[in-house]
Design a protein around this nucleic acid. Structure first.
Length: 422
RNA sequence: GGGCAGGUGACGGAGUGGUUGAACGUGCUCGUCUCGAAAACGAGUUAGGGUGAAACCUACGGGGGUUCGAAUCCCCCCCUGCCCUCCA
């Protein structure tokens, strides 16, 4: 959510920000009109209430019965009027609030302007793709042959875009989860959190998934509960409606959870393999920081995710996302692992600074110092990393001519001595 | 799912229709005192909106109602604790 004061005081700045990311600048004028109307109604109803409060106090001291009754009758009429204004003011508020919740965030000035994901910038590429003396196979062929991914039975029990990991495949993913969590908690300073996997609508509004981006969510029928699309939702909402002490910041959390996404918009794309599925696991990092530090915190967040890619010894690249691909962030970077079997770069991490956009929605504040007014924190999050695509990258990069898969060195301690899956 | 008891500021805890935005205590901040600290004493200390600053408005779990006036009365819902039931 944006600061209404910013919109009032510097509408041109907001219009320009919307234009940079391809949103309609006229939204600004629409919100200003609604703001003016609701404030006008508020001023009127508050003046009436002030009168009522004053007279009510007088009534309590009045001795003369007739005069008292007259005042009460007068206030009864005023009460009806207040009720009518209250209703109008509430309606105007609701309209204003609804628009505020769908306004996009303003991109950071440093973000390159673009009109689609094609305008994202490759910042750098690390590692060299391995030279194969045979044709590398896609992970679905290798996974099925080794009996570590069972596509058919996943579809049988849950439908398309669900899969089953089995034997060394299940063990490999568990090893990755354990290793990633250990790395972030012991080397990068994150505190592990194991949150609920379903949340109330409020939480989704807090992170910005609702009301605008609800089409990819799985809702639980008959309940106000939704399966989380990412751990970002429960973890960011951990401190909703709270005022933190400055001494508590920065807060770093890391959480491993399954994620559910109803990929309606992706049509028939990526139907093979485990690249795009309805349920996947992910290790997610979330930060709550003081506003002045959020840019520096984004850089370390990216580095934390990058360390995982680096340690796996798989080629990867860092992308700076353009204004069209920002989602609700002010600034965002993606990490992509190279996958030789499917012959493409796979997005395994998205690291973003949201500024105070989520903090305003979720009302997450901190007190800069004793006695000071509470201010909104800045929130950030980044995948560290998304599991199925890391699995793809490992399977395809570490495959051997005979179809076996070498276990990356960093994971061997987590694999109970298995160094080759065959 | 059933029953009982509750939900008030950072915390404990008063308050059952009218100077209560909230007693009292604790904590915290500043000051006096002190070589320094503790103790003691004094002052301050909820949040949101609003204003140049005030005034003023709103909020005592949430929503609705009664009333000139509600933290206080009524209705619905949510949450917490305990007991029973159920269950991994």
């Amino acid at each position: 959510m944006l600061d209404i004061k910013l919109i009032r005081d510097q509408p041109d700045v907001v219009r320009a920000g919307f234009a940079r990311r391809g949103e309609d600048p006229a939204l600004v004028d629409q919100v200003l009109r609604l703001d003016e109307r609701r404030r006008e109604l508020l001023r009127e109803v508050e003046a009436l209430k002030a009168t009522r409060n004053l007279v009510s106090k007088e009534i309590s001291k009045m001795k003369d019965a007739a005069a008292r009754e007259a005042k009460i009758a007068e206030m009864r009429a005023l009460g009806d009027q207040i009720g009518e204004f209250d209703r109008q003011a509430a309606a105007a508020d609701a309209e204003f609030d609804a628009l505020m919740l769908v306004l996009p965030n303003l991109p950071d000035q440093r973000v390159p302007v673009g009109t689609s994901e094609h305008d994202n910038i490759v910042v750098r590429t690390e590692g060299t793709p391995r030279a194969f003396d045979f044709t590398p196979k896609p992970h679905w062929e290798l996974g099925e042959a080794l009996d570590i991914i069972d596509f058919e039975r996943g579809i049988k029990i849950s439908g398309s875009r669900f899969f089953v990991l089995k034997g060394a495949g299940a063990r490999l993913q568990r090893a990755l989860v354990g290793w990633m969590l250990d790395t972030h908690t012991t080397k990068h300073g994150y505190t592990e959190v194991l949150p609920p996997y379903v949340v109330k609508a409020d939480a989704l509004v807090g992170t910005g998934n609702l009301p605008k981006f609800g089409e990819n969510l799985f809702r639980i029928e008959g309940h106000d509960l939704t399966l989380i699309p990412t751990a970002e939702v429960p973890v960011t909402n951990l401190y909703r409606e709270e005022i933190l002490d400055a001494g508590q910041l920065p807060i770093y959390h890391v959480a491993y959870t399954p994620c559910w996404r109803n990929e309606q918009m992706s049509g028939g794309r990526d139907v093979r393999g485990i690249k795009r599925v309805y349920q996947f696991d992910k290790v997610e990092m979330v930060k709550f920081v003081e506003p002045a530090h959020s840019y520096a915190e984004l850089l370390t967040l990216i580095d934390n995710a990058e360390q995982i890619c680096k340690a796996l010894a798989i080629p990867y690249r860092l992308l700076e996302l353009c204004t069209a691909d920002l989602g609700t962030a002010v600034m965002k970077y993606d990490l992509e692992l190279w996958a030789p079997g499917v012959d493409e770069w796979l997005e395994v991490s998205s690291c973003a600074n949201f500024g105070d956009y989520q903090a305003r929605r979720a009302n997450i504040r901190y007190r800069p110092e004793h006695g000071a007014k509470p201010e909104f924190v800045h929130t950030l999050n980044g995948s560290g990393l998304a599991l199925p695509r890391v699995m793809i990258a490992i399977i395809e990069n570490y495959q051997q001519a005979d179809g076996s898969i070498v276990v990356p060195e960093v994971l061997r301690g987590y694999m109970g001595g298995v160094d080759v899956i065959r």
